[in-house]
C-alpha cells in the first residue's frame, strides 16, 4: 500500500506544470493526535503531497522511465494551518530537468490563499548514484499513481494495451 496524499489532478501539462487537489478529512486518523482538540494537517505531509504532485510531473516528463526519488527540500515555508474540511490545491512546476535530476517549485493554496511554498529536487537514481544498481521494475510509479493520471496523459499501463 502507498500513502497517497493527493485525491486527483485538476490540470496536467506534460513536462511543465500540474495542479492536484486534496480534501482534508477528520477521517484521517493521524489528525486525531495532531493535535488533540486542534486537528491540523502535518506540514511534513504537505511536503509529501507536493512531492507526489511534482514527482509524478517529473516522472511523466520522461515517460516514467526514470525512478524519481525526492532528494532535497530546497525550501518549505508555511503560512497557514490546514484544517479538516479544507480543500487544498497543489501547484507544481518543473524549473529544470536533466538526465540525472529535476528541480521543481510549488505552492499550496486554499482557494486564493497561499498556504505554503515548497521547492524540491528529485534524483533520477539510475543515473545519479555512480553506477549503484536498483531493481529493474519502476517501484516508484505504481498503479495507484498511474490511476491518478487517467484522462490526463497516457500512462505506461495503458500504452501496452
Amino acid at each position: 500500500m502507498r500513502w497517497i496524499w493527493i485525491d486527483k489532478f485538476l490540470e496536467f501539462k506534460s513536462g511543465e506544470s500540474a495542479v492536484a487537489l486534496k480534501n482534508v478529512s477528520l477521517a484521517e486518523e493521524h489528525l486525531h493526535d495532531h493535535f488533540p482538540g486542534f486537528p491540523i494537517m502535518p506540514e511534513c505531509l504537505m511536503i509529501e503531497a507536493m512531492a507526489q504532485t511534482a514527482g509524478i510531473l517529473v516522472g511523466q516528463a520522461r515517460n516514467f522511465e526514470e525512478k524519481v526519488i525526492l532528494a532535497k527540500i530546497k525550501k518549505a515555508a508555511f503560512y497557514h494551518f490546514v484544517r479538516p474540511g479544507d480543500t487544498i490545491t497543489l501547484h507544481a512546476q518543473i524549473d529544470s530537468i536533466a538526465p540525472e535530476a529535476a528541480s521543481t517549485t510549488g505552492e499550496i493554496r486554499r482557494g486564493d490563499e497561499r498556504i505554503a511554498r515548497i521547492n524540491l529536487m528529485f534524483s533520477h537514481i539510475d543515473n545519479n548514484l555512480a553506477g549503484a544498481e536498483f531493481p529493474e521494475e519502476n517501484f516508484v510509479f505504481t498503479d495507484m499513481f498511474n490511476s491518478l493520471l487517467t484522462g490526463f496523459v497516457e500512462t505506461p499501463s495503458e500504452q501496452g494495451q
Binding site: A71, K72, S96, A98, E100, A101
Partner: peptide
Amino acid sequence: ESIDFLDIIFRLEKAFDIKVPR
C-alpha cells in the same frame, strides 16, 4: 552533498543564462 552539485548547476544555469554540462 552530491545532490547539491546538481542543485548548484541548475541555479548557475538560471543565474548566468548558460548551459552547464555536469
